[in-house]
Amino acid sequence: MLCWTTPNLQTPMYFFLRHLSFSDLCYSSVITPKLLESLIIGDSSILYAACMTQLVVFSIFGSLECLILGLMACDRSVAVCKPLFYHLIMTDSVCERLIASCYMVSITTSMLNAAYALQLSFCSAIQIHHFYCDYPPLLKLSCSDTSVNELVLLASVSCVSGVSVITILVSYGYIIFTVLRLRSKVGRQKAFYTCSSHLIVVSVFYGTILFMYLRPGGKYFSDQDKVVAVFYTVVIPVLNPIIYSMRNRELKSALTKILRRMNVVV
């Protein structure tokens, strides 16, 4: 909301940050309410249709988060390496096309996995050893052959994560190369400070995602996976606003101005 309502935050970096926040909000909202219902009320049952809906929505916005993190790395690379041409390269139309591509890829890969998930058969009433409906625990409980499902899941996750990781590595490779050539120590510190928030988010997010999904189907351990899943479904969506807001002077300044208008801050 700050990015939308503050004129000086209408830049590509905050454009991508808005969509990252939206994706965090959506995929945590499809998981956390049911988790709280299970913990507080004790009702841990979920309808099959609700389970599939949870599976698809979480997959779409989880994939979207991966791709947006890649775009943000690319944006930071252009800002650090080509500062004079930044606004010529990262125009509004370019940013809109890039983010639209992310949504299309996320929806396509998620619907493909969902189509194969709907073909799974379960021999009896099932108990998912997880706190939400996810592909790995469902594959583990299915009594049908899941080799094709595992292959499709591995291919889609590798595609989405692979494109994002390669983009991040290449972008930060350019950033490091450019920063090391700067003669000014202050300039180097400023450049690394600009990218530090993004690096923190990427490290935590991808550490959990790669551990969770890029493994053979027989190597899923429910208790271990639950702990890991808590990080990218609950902890990371909470950390992202803190990391990007508390370390960002422009966002803190915009928030202070709005609070002063509302007579909250004197």
Rank of each mutant, 00 (worst) to 15 (best):
V105R: 08
E65I: 06
G70W: 00
V105D: 09
L67C: 13
F131S: 02
L71R: 13
Q119A: 06
C133W: 00
A73P: 10
C102R: 01
A125M: 13
G70D: 05
V105G: 03
S124M: 08
L118T: 08
E65P: 02
M72C: 13
A125K: 12
L141V: 08
L69D: 04
S93E: 13
L141K: 10
Y103N: 12
L138E: 04
Y116W: 14
A115G: 06
L69E: 04
A115M: 07
P137V: 00
V80C: 08
V105K: 05
V80F: 00
C102Q: 01
Y103C: 14
V80S: 11
L118Q: 09
K140N: 08
L67T: 02
L67R: 12
I99V: 13
Y135V: 14
V80H: 04
C133K: 06
Q119C: 00
P137L: 01
K82M: 15
F122A: 00
T109V: 15
V78R: 06
L139N: 04
I126F: 03
A100Y: 11
A73K: 05
L69Q: 01
F122Y: 07
M104P: 03
A79F: 05
L88M: 08
A100V: 08
I89D: 01
D92Q: 13
C95R: 10
Y132M: 02
I89T: 07
S124H: 14
L141Y: 05
I128D: 00
A100Q: 08
K82F: 14
C66P: 06
T108Y: 15
L139H: 11
H129P: 06
V94L: 15
Y135E: 03
E65V: 10
L118D: 06
M90Y: 02
C102F: 07
A114C: 15
T91M: 07
P136L: 01
I107P: 11
F122S: 02
L88E: 13
C102L: 00
H87C: 04
C133P: 06
P137S: 04
